[in-house]
Amino acid sequence: MDKKDYIGIINKRVDQLYPEFVKIRRFLHENPELSTKEFNTQKYLLKLLDKYDVEIDSNIKGTGICATLKGKFPGKTIAFRGDMDALNIKEETGLPYKSAKDGIMHACGHDSHMTFLMGSLMVLSEFKDQLKGNIKFIFQPAEESVGGAREMIEDGALNNPKVDLIIGSHIWPEIDTGTIGLKKGPIMSSPDIFEIEVIGKGGHAGKPDKVVDPIMLAGEIITSIENKILRPSNPFEPIVITSCSINGGNSYNVVPDTCTIKGTVRTFSEKSRDYVEGKMKNLINSVVNMSGGQSEFKYIRRFPPTINESNTIDFIYESASEIIGASNVLNIKYPSMSSEDFSYFLNEIPGAYIFIGTRNEKKNFIYDLHNQKFTIDEEALKVGIKVFVKSALDYLQ
């Protein structure tokens, strides 16, 4: 089929099916579920998928779904991934379809991500007899917690048929509705976490010579991070170290025995992760040993950084420009210090993670992700689906 022909069909069908997309997204928004507990979400999606000629991978455990639309002719396989889980946030949008579950909310747009996949399938199914290859739709649980991408990979989501290219997306309130954002190389950081227990010697607050104050030592560790770790690091390889919690003692006149610091480290390379972990260990030991204290240090590496493959970004740029206009395909200058377990997929096969704009100040769609007032401009659903469908058809030509 000529490219101009299917661009016209995509635009027409997306406009026609738009009310269905909105209906799906609003149902998902109203019925959020937390990580690893997406049971009803899975049932709802499977019921929708049952209307289409797709193969459901029975090897996928838990609440995830891997559905494959097989073309009439042999060829490559492209995959699209959408995450499923919601957050422990009490919604304050006032929407008529706001969360029906108190304290649980789709405040990170995963309801939209699932809709991108379902909407794309609805349109692409109409091209099934012309497809040269296959399209996988990976509905992934537990992005917000344990990193469900890794388990789905272990279950074989990228096999049978083997996936050649994968694309994921995030609804993005920092860029306008109607646009998408692309970036080569690092686009999201690794979200490592640390915990430091500083062990001193408690005692009377009026007798500082008789104690080893763990709160003072913890404060010195936190303030030394800037001079001893961040300042000597390569300024062209960004690192963020944030101490988010410090707990020690419960009295105004007693020095406690211990004080605990918890925080996060954000980096864009394994080299930077190694650097931070080693430097933190040395810094902590230096501070506590000099004062006669002790410490226990835990550094937990969570998702890897999300690194886009350059050729895939070039491909998406060309494909998306033809259907939403080149002026609406934006270059994202700086990566985000947010994180994404989509990185596990990109560590396995070529692919890219892209942003779908949803900012609309006239409609007051201005709130950031993870905010209790966050919601999307539903016109963004059209954009995400058009870009996914066009990318799939172009890739399988």
Rank of each mutant, 00 (worst) to 15 (best):
Y334M: 13
V383I: 14
L117S: 05
V212Q: 08
G278I: 01
R302S: 11
S190D: 05
T41K: 01
G181C: 00
M280H: 12
D164N: 11
V329K: 00
D102F: 11
S327P: 06
G200D: 09
K210S: 15
I193K: 12
I171G: 02
I9A: 08
D274S: 13
E237N: 12
A157M: 06
K37S: 12
N88P: 09
G64Q: 01
E174D: 13
E318A: 15
A392T: 03
K72C: 07
V287Q: 04
P235F: 07
F27W: 14
E55V: 14
I193P: 05
S251D: 09
N289M: 12
F342T: 10
M216L: 15
I300Q: 07
I225T: 08
D53N: 14
D192V: 05
K98Q: 14
C108F: 11
I24Y: 14
D53Y: 10
H170P: 12
L28P: 05
D57T: 01
E361G: 04
G351V: 12
N360F: 04
F345S: 09
I354R: 01
Y275N: 07
N31P: 09
G64R: 01
T63H: 02
H370V: 10
K228C: 04
K70D: 04
K184D: 05
E379T: 07
N160V: 09
Y334D: 15
G203K: 07
G156K: 06
V14Q: 10
V123S: 01
S321V: 13
S99D: 07
R13D: 15
K4C: 04
Y344N: 11
E144P: 00
G384I: 03
I135S: 00
K363W: 10
M122D: 03
E126C: 06
A320C: 13
A157D: 00
C244L: 12
E38Y: 03
Y367Q: 03
P141E: 05
I356N: 06
E30D: 09
S338F: 10
K228F: 13
E378A: 05
G64P: 00
C244M: 11
Y52C: 12
H204C: 10
Y252E: 13
K362I: 13
H110E: 04
N134T: 07
G103A: 08
M337Y: 15
K386Y: 08
F194K: 02
K390M: 01
Y52W: 15
I60T: 05
Y353T: 10
G82M: 03
I239H: 08
